[in-house]
Design a protein around this nucleic acid. Sequence first.
RNA 1: GGGCGUAUAGCUCAGUGGUAGAGCACUACAUUGACAUUGUAGGGGCCGGGAGUUCAACUCUCUCUACGCCCACCA
Length: 913
Amino acid sequence: MTLSTTFAPADIETRWYQHWEEKGLFRPERPNAEPYTIVNPPPNVTGSLHIGHALDNTLQDIVIRYERLRGKDALWVVGTDHAGIATQMVVERQLEERQDKRTNYSREDFVKKVWTWKEESGGTITKQLRRLGCSMDWSREQFTMDEHFTDAVLKTFVDLYNDGLIYRDKRLVNWDPKLKTAISDLEVETQDLKGSFWHFKYPLEDGVTLADGRDFIEVATTRPETMLADMAVAVHPTDERYASVVGKHVVLPITGRKVPIVADEHADPELGSGAVKITPGHDFNDFEVGKRAGIAAGDMLNMLDGEGNVCQTSDALVPDEFLGLHRFKRDKVNGARELVIERLKEQGFLIPHITKTKKGEEVELDAEPRTIATPFGDRGGVVIEPWLTDQWYVDAEKLAVKPIEQVKSGEIEIIPETWEKTFFNWMENIQPWCVSRQLWWGHRIPAWFGPDGAVYVALTEEEAQEKAGAGVTLTQDPDVLDTWFSSALWPFATLGWPNQTDLLEKHFPNNLLVSGFDILFFWDARMMMMGQYNMGKAPWPKLYLHGLVRAADGAKMSKSKGNVVDPLGLIDQYGADALRFFMAAMESQGRDIKMDDERVKGYRNFATKLWNATRFCQSNGIGASTTLAAPEAKLAANQWIIGEVQQTVEKLEAAMADLRFDAAANTIYHFTWDRFCDWYLELIKPVFAEGASETAAAETREVAGWALDQILVMLHPFMPFITEELWHAQGDLAGTSRKDYPIITAKWPEPRAKVSKAATDAIDWVIDLTGNVRSAKNELGIPPGAKLPAFLPSPSALAGSTIERSSAAIERLARLTPVTLSDAPDGPAMQITAGEDVFIIPLEGIIDIAEEKARLTKALEASSKEAASLEGRLSNANFVERAKPEAVEKAKADFAHHSAEAERLKAALERLG
RNA sequence: GGGCGUAUAGCUCAGUGGUAGAGCACUACAUUGACAUUGUAGGGGCCGGGAGUUCAACUCUCUCUACGCCCACCA
């Protein structure tokens, strides 16, 4: 197949992807091969491909294609996450658009609707991953609510419960009043908001006064509305101002509730008045203070319902006018907060804040302005309410023990290592994980309650019934599990666990996990815990964490800012290969990537360059290679390129072993463009000229075809589409083909070549000479195309043989002809070096002597400076005695080189007069 | 408050205990045969400031400054 003159990515991408997928090439049968396994972080089923996915999946695909080429049984597990809250929200939003709502349906009917949505619309992201070229095993596509996955989830829950690692507890949780569910600590995001700090007087009970005679205690709060459920005032135990009233009471305004003054170290004497109001039912600190003061969780007052509206407390002291109000101002409607302030102000309990304006006038404000760290739910987007409920908790502290050890011992390697500290910091202070969610979509918790509240945890209702005894009416817990509870099982539940399948046996533990650092705690750490708990092993030995892809200006991409870059748009514009190569080339460990369209464009140009190089090969009858090993070669250029391929393979393998995607991408980029295209193809052009030797041409065709093939294979993990296309295009030529199989399952290069040093030295010498000639011409204003006669009075052995063997290349590239191995005639001349050789080129009026002098002077200055610096170092006794011998040797050699060069240049200058 | 990261060419970023590299941008030149999505040559860097260790520091240590991120209960 002859290539078209232009490279159009879109034409080939769909075609090859379909071919790969239909032929099952993402996971060819390799029963005896060493396994290599990666599980893909399952994207939300509601998701669509964003730029972060593009990075994450490109890196994984590079690794998996690389290992596949190296002959491994490479398995890349793929699937989607049911994403409890996100998915339920999507379907609820659809209902709302039709003035409908979830609660109009039974739970079963609603869940059915979600499944229908999933079937119809849940495949967006999987189609998009295909456009990126990701070679996942779609034949075993997983979903976290697949039947077998659900079995794994239930078994894990029941086992953990039986081992005492899951328990039910009544305590404060982060409650999302919009979604009406509990969420975990990790799902809370703190934002700094402008707020107010109010100061109140709480009157002391009759007959009690402070040491200074006041009959009230001043307290301050950012959440005045919670005073409706206050249960104490705390002061520090050593605070003398309040020592006399500890154990006495205050009488709260509005509710008239009489609450004790307690001593507790939580109260900071330095802060405000030193006294703090305690609302155990709506504040995490106060909850602890309340417990220390002897208040049981069950007795703590709760003044809000699940939507954040005021409800009656158990002591029935909240006045009617507050009932039903929202906790604070919302949609411009005042809430309980505003009403509390109004009433306190009316009744003289509000202490105004006095401040001065810029002009120096004193003004009285209701409250002190202040920045308040406010907790928000990451999905619902509303302020979290600490709320007292019964929930299920996982004892994360116990599960974290082993993973911490594994990271410490190196059994699990975190790359880059700097994340280890963060990991330990979180794991060593880990809190119980609240795993129950008050949603309908998700894994229903396998717990049943008897009429007396007794709980029975079992895999099935039948088992639970058995435990409870016949005749006991059981009701299943309505809650579902946190989505992350199921995704924590991903590395093994996707392989069949809890069944002991062959797949599981072979592919667990996985070999590597690639994820963004943003889900280190959400997902990675929890996989470690669950992997250890269920499998007794770490789920993978290596965890590679990459950064975020940022907008071009360095800002975080977000829908609200409108600076989101669509990876599919980039694919349309530049091709998937270019986008992938960009991601790889920019991925240096531990750093965020700034988006740069120009660079993506640059890699599209690189693809075009390769395309055109292949066209050149085709037009010269260069076809596909026939062997994995490098062909026998006699010509210097051919031996040289074989040696260059060999070095490139080594560098690439080293980079991949270290997961240095940037180094790997740059290695193949520079080899392809700088070495292969810019030098090798130029060097071999004379071989195909009319009248050249047919044996030489035949050898060169073979070597060039081989070298191009090695490029295609090495580049394939990064640019799968263009390499597959060119692989076949080459293979279709002239019948000399080993391309009866696709590149995706080709073999990784093994040049196994012995390359003579003489040959590579010769080409390096030609390259050096050519560069120096071009440079001199440029500086002297000689037309680049001009052919110049040259004299080489005392050629080195290398020069002698090279001029003989590669005269065509010297003529074509260096444009020196004829080269005479004798002294130059008298008269002004310029000098050009190549290695240790000095060419003399007579000027004969073509060169401006002044300019040549300037050029030589500049070069002489550089050489002298180098030589002087090295001489200084070598004359330093400390250096010679104490530096490493190699360093001293190198300095000596460099000095010899630079001083000789300086001598030559001096002589040349003198010749010019 | 604690932890982490980053500061290198105009921009985006690599890098090593032995006087600095890439891509883009810039300048000059070239151009009918693989390729203008090109070629050739070139200019451009007190490697954030200061101190220390060392024969030698862009690199190691400390410190300062700036920016970014994560965690944390300041009512």
